[in-house]
Amino acid sequence: MKPVIESLFHDAETCYLKSDEIVEVSQYMSSLKERTRLYRTIRDEEITWMQPIADDLEQCFPTEQIDRLETSLRNAMLSMRHCAMAMLMDDPTYLEGHFLTWFQESIEIHGTSDLDNHIHNALRKQISQVLNTSQMSLLTPFLHKIESSFKPTDVINDDSLLTVAGLF
């Protein structure tokens, strides 16, 4: 849940909510119906949205290993699931705590920045054709955070450290 609102619930012993705090709770509650509807759409359309992107990905990166493509597609779906949850709870800190650090390191480890960026752009294009302006505005702040993870990085490609079994 939105951290500001969550903190208010723990403060009942101190005082009643101030007017601006009640407004904030009220705004969140009134947006919940829209957020729930959007969350349900994202959940139900996951495969429908991602399959054409997967097909396109194979054509755009014909020489790329399949398991690398699959890793990036899985991570794209994972990022969308986390964005949807963050949007539902209206929690701007959710992605940092649950996903972003891991995602950024994962991109660095696998050197998939180009693939991830390509999938994300295609997904953005896909959903902007389906979702209305209001829904996009609910989701966009979280998509921006995901986009900030796509920085070109060097692939960690030291064969001597390929697997744990190669240690010593």
Partner: peptide
């Protein structure tokens, strides 16, 4: 051809297992 449905056969998409907020 990559099938998205096949990628979702497993019960979860593995992410950050040791994320403090989830762990």
């Amino acid at each position: 051809m990559i099938s998205i449905a096949d990628l979702l056969v497993q019960p979860r998409l593995p992410g950050s297992y040791y994320s403090s907020q989830a762990y």
